[in-house]
Each structure stands twice: as structure tokens, then as C-alpha cells.
Design a protein around this nucleic acid. Sequence first.
DNA 1: CAAAATTAAATTGTGTACAATTCAATTTTT
DNA 2: AAAAATTGAATTGTACACAATTTAATTTTG
Lengths: 157, 157
Amino acid sequence: MNDATHPSLLLDQQLCFALYAASRSMTAAYRPLLDELGLTYPQYLTMLVLWEQDGLTVRELGQRLQLDSGTLTPLLKRLQQAALISRERRRSDEREVEICLTPEGRALREPAKAVPACMASRLCLSHEDMQRLRDELKQLAAQLSPPQAWLPPRTQT
Amino acid sequence: MNDATHPSLLLDQQLCFALYAASRSMTAAYRPLLDELGLTYPQYLTMLVLWEQDGLTVRELGQRLQLDSGTLTPLLKRLQQAALISRERRRSDEREVEICLTPEGRALREPAKAVPACMASRLCLSHEDMQRLRDELKQLAAQLSPPQAWLPPRTQT
DNA sequence: CAAAATTAAATTGTGTACAATTCAATTTTT
DNA sequence: AAAAATTGAATTGTACACAATTTAATTTTG
């Protein structure tokens, strides 16, 4: 009764499920560390971006994290409530909301520095294997969501 | 000002973010296909399990998908509303709820057979590379959530 | 066997994700 | 410059995730 013209529908054969399960395991593994910092996992990723570059707009943060305003707006409101960031309309363009770290938000970077090392030790992967896996996942994501590469480059109307 | 005793806090260096982004890209890539079937991504995974083995309990489904009743109960209610499954207390143990496919649920397997092939063609990965990546992700997840292996085996109180 | 402990689902509450819509500000067209 | 189109956030509504609690059924203990 097997139909060899189709790949398997078995759960354990699916790359998508392995990815989904691994991603949730990773989030769960971060949770106790991030609890110490008072951050959720997406909030931590957001702080990583802001520690790199302060004063981004919601749109720029969204591009970096690949999240839209529907996700970011409430998340950023919570970071603001936690006094880690400020949200202010730009004078130059009142549509844009600029996100800036508060002193507390900037200070949180210090204890956060221990997080990547702590996780790395849990992974039992060499730095090289870690990099390779990371880059394979980036390529996979790029393959799945080519940045509208197929859209014609507006030759004419 | 770099502190070489710590791994990087840069977003693009993080395996966790690559995993998180890839997982969401994968879900997004499945969405148009699953819309045709009237399923969400977690609902599709649930159906994969049931097409393999019908009549599982909520607990058994949860073990397979690594999801708890807080997630599964409402998801299964929606599958029941869509007339794809039935939910019934077991006579043998009234605590357990048995999930069975309806004829419609079983029939949905046919159009679903096209889904893995369609996704595979999007990935531009050889079957071997796909398997390797999948197995690396499984190992990563296993490493991150060892089934309480470190808990002492209850030697004494 | 009755009380205590355990188990399986369901419920409650918080926090994402994301499509679709709304609203206000800005830019482009006419 | 006024109308039309576009843009950036916010809002609305649906669907997960998951911790914590509750409830009911079953099993274990004393």
C-alpha cells in the first residue's frame, strides 16, 4: 500500500518537525537563564539587537528580527514597562517610533554576557560545528523566504 | 572594549536565532499549502501523528509532539469542530481522552500526500543533506532536553 | 477499605506570531 | 497645492506555547 511517488508523511521523517521541536527545545533551555534577567526569549533577541545598535525604529527592529508590528508593539510595550527601553515618535517623521535603551536596559548587557557561554556549554558542539549548523539554518531560511527575489524589478508599470 | 572571555552577543552569531528564524520561515512556507487543507501547521503535525496511529490519548499525542494539554486541548477542539477527529473519554480509564480520526480526517490524508514533495522541491537540498540536517536537529533537541537524565534515580528519601 | 498520593485533561493567565484592518503622517501625482 | 497613494505603528482577531492551577478519576498506602 506504500506510494513510492510521494515522500513520507511519517512525523519522524519530517525536517519541519525536527526544526520546530529543536526551536522549542532551544527556547525552553534559555528560559531559566533569561528568567534571571527578567526577559522572555523574543525579548532577549530584541535586546541583543538594541545592544548592537540603539535608537532603531520598530520597522528596523522588525527587519532584523523578522517580526511585524503586531508582534513587536506589545513586546516593546512590555520592555518599556520593565523600564529597559523608551519608545518615542521621531520628530523628523512622526510615523516612526524610535526605540532607545534606558540606563537599566544598557546595564542588563553585563549579566547577559554570561548567557551565550552557558548555552554553548550545554550544546556539546564544537565552535566549528555550531557555526556550520547556524549557517545551514540561515541558508534554509533564505531559501524558504527569498526576499521577494522573484518579483520583477519594476521594469515598467 | 571586547571581552574575549565571553562568546558574542551579536544576533547574527547566535545559533538560537538562526533556529528560531528558520523554524518560523518553515512554518510560513507551509502555510499556503496547509490553507488548502484547512489546517494550521501544528494541526498538520497532529494529523501526521494520527494518520500514523489512530486512537491515541491526549497524553500520547503530547509525548509524540512534545506539547502539553494546555496547547493540545484547544487545538484538538478545533480539529473536532472541523469534523476531522472525535474526542472521547476511555471507558477503561475515564481520565484519558481518546482521539480518533473521522472518515473526513482519514480522507484528508490523500491530498496531504502532496505536501512533503512540494516542500522538498522548495528546499533545494539533496535527500541526504535533508536527512543529515534533520538528524542534527534531533540530536540538538535531545541534547537540550535530556529526559531528566541527571535526576538521581531515587536512591533514598 | 478509606485517606493520601498520583495521574490525565482541562482551565487560567501571560506572551508571542501573524493576517488583516485602521489610523495618522508623509510622499507622490496630477 | 490638493487628491491619491504609500508608509509605519497600532489594533483586532485567531491560534499557538507553556507555566500554574484545578478537577476528576485512579492507584497506592496505611
